[in-house]
Write a protein that binds this DNA or RNA. Structure first.
Lengths: 347, 347
DNA sequence: CTGTTAGCGCCTTCAA
DNA sequence: TTGAAGGCGCTAACAG
């Protein structure tokens, strides 16, 4: 006969037999209303009762059931955060910003990831709404705008990586085109003319914007756009590695690379290294994002800094305002070029 | 007069006026019990009523309130995950493993971070318990064991980075000493004798174990331990950078570095680079962790692979067993050395 | 197969 | 300042 390893659950509710306000009230010799009032600090409670309740709470190790409180109050004090992948520095840095904005507000983030799968995304959002989140933060979602608008009827939404405007729907988007321009202009100013762009995924709007910025800078310097110098990628190291390896194999000549993001730049850097090409002596390299690690690779990467932390913070702050029924128009943090050691004047 | 931006909340409960089972039942012409049964799939419901309920749900856009369900059932279908920092690849990789283990079980992770602050850690755990999590996963916590044991009375706990055993408490710890030994032996086998150890924080047990492994390998090869070759760090890039810079300034000679983790190795690598020392031609370098980026830095880092994903998966699976009241004894995934391109035979 | 009923733990009028 | 009472949305006996 198996030994039961824990107390049987009561047939309904509360596992094992956690203490409730009823038990605290009994132990303290007051009514549950008084306990509740004391807990929420809503009304004055006489000193004597207060002490009795304190004692009872300590003795019984009472911990209020936040679920019950949420149900009763109709406020979960929770916001949902939808990310694509918790294992990407790009998202996690934003999450830290979200945490910072929420600190001290009593709100907790409920983080879910949809692993770049649109179907999962809709499902996750549904689940968040079921859990009564008071607002949702969509970090780089791929859901069509129409669907977001419909969801925003249920709950306020702030989405990053998009331009959106609505009563309870807000987009927060950095100037990717400007960032691409900045990166490319930097290379042009150093005298580079054969500049490869290791691009992002075809269907990604951010990637498209960065490419557009690249083209604008080229045009401004009177450099003809050469389609052969734009190679496809996937925003990951493998993409940069494969693209540059392929390009080198074909014997295409160039003196600089602007990668669509830092991970792509790392891959590109490795491809260059494998062929004995030095950075920046032989080839200059610029990334996009400025991941924490980018300042510590060798040589430290010149890149376009995305203020991920600020974006997360601004987005969460805006969401909080939306939840409170106040108008919100978050200021979008600006991108800036961080010149480190992977770029040099062309020889 | 201010324009109200959203519907006023009803004085209690449910924001705005979300649809409930009552309304679905009315619209479908059945009782709420039937709606509930249909939703949970617990019992048979006649075809006709099923269709009516489906129609009502679709028409009213009903979404069940999971909070109410949890309260009633006494099961939140949630596990708490305490991390130190969501913005560390070390943790996030583990989180992905946790997600994988939870997939399809109906359980959701509730992720909180305590930012390396022990006080916050206790606070976060309390909050998780308040939210009725059915179990808690502590990723590299710093809470003393006694406190964990006390908490485990309330809710099953699995902690990584510790050895623990209890009815409802489990530790999951990799063999850090063995890993340190592996790394160091590799360098010794390449002929290195003056091997620097860029250590982790003084008070960290993992760091201490890795150092112990380093010493064991040294002893095994008959190399005297030299205290001056062990330099302190903080498990981050800055630590490795400063420690190695300092060592180089002092003119200490060495031919290899074993860093307590990859981030430290990146910092060390940069310090070497700044002094014109080549890796691995002049100095060999070994890390510990095998972060995703480590395969893509230049040159790709030789390091001890920690199966973070597997650890997260095993820990979460064990927790689920604990929650179900079953005994759990997770197998601890093994460490292995991944030889890449930062180590070479000494010249 | 279906409806009635009694709560889960907490909060909040209402009346004292 | 305090207590009694009703109910948040949902589920799970218990009858029918």
């Amino acid at each position: 006969m198996p030994i039961p390893t824990r107390r049987k659950r009561s047939e309904s509710g509360n596992a094992g037999g956690a203490v409730t306000t009823v038990q605290v009230a009994e132990a303290a010799g007051v009514s549950i209303a008084t306990v509740s009032r004391y807990l929420s600090g809503q009304a004055r409670v006489s000193e004597a009762k207060r002490d009795a309740i304190d004692a009872a709470i300590a003795q019984l190790k009472f911990k209020p059931n936040l679920l019950a409180r949420s149900l009763k109050r109709g406020r979960s004090m929770t916001i949902g955060v939808l990310t694509q992948d918790v294992n990407s520095p790009f998202f996690t840095e934003t999450l830290v910003g979200v945490e910072a904005a929420l600190e001290g507000t009593g709100y907790q983030p409920l983080i879910v990831s949809s692993h770049w799968r649109p179907a999962e995304e809709a499902d996750r959002i549904r689940s968040l709404i079921g859990r009564q989140v008071e607002g949702i933060l969509v970090l780089i979602g791929s859901l069509p705008q129409a669907q977001l608008l419909k969801l925003a009827e249920d709950v306020p939404i702030v989405a990053t990586g998009r331009e959106l405007q609505g009563q309870r729907l807000l987009g927060l988007r950095v100037d990717n085109e400007g960032g691409g321009y900045l990166a490319t202009r930097h290379l042009l100013e150093l005298g580079h003319r054969r500049i490869v762009h290791a691009a992002g995924p075809d269907d990604n709007v951010d990637a498209a914007d960065r490419l557009a910025g690249y083209r604008r800078a080229l045009a401004e310097f009177g450099v003809a756009f050469d389609r052969k110098l734009v190679v496809p990628g996937n925003f990951r190291e493998t993409g940069g590695l494969m693209a540059l390896t392929h390009l080198l194999d074909k014997g295409v000549s160039f003196t600089a690379v602007f990668a669509a993001n830092d991970q792509t730049a790392f891959g590109a850097r490795l491809a260059l290294h494998r062929r004995g090409l030095r950075v920046p002596e032989d080839v200059s390299l610029v990334g996009f994002d400025d991941l924490p690690i980018s300042a510590f690779v060798t040589p430290p990467l010149t890149t376009v800094h995305q203020p991920m932390f600020d974006i997360g913070k601004a987005a969460a702050a805006a969401l909080l305002r939306l939840i409170a029924g106040e108008p919100a128009a978050p200021e979008v943090p600006a991108l800036k070029l961080v010149v480190r050691e992977t770029t040099a004047r062309v020889r």
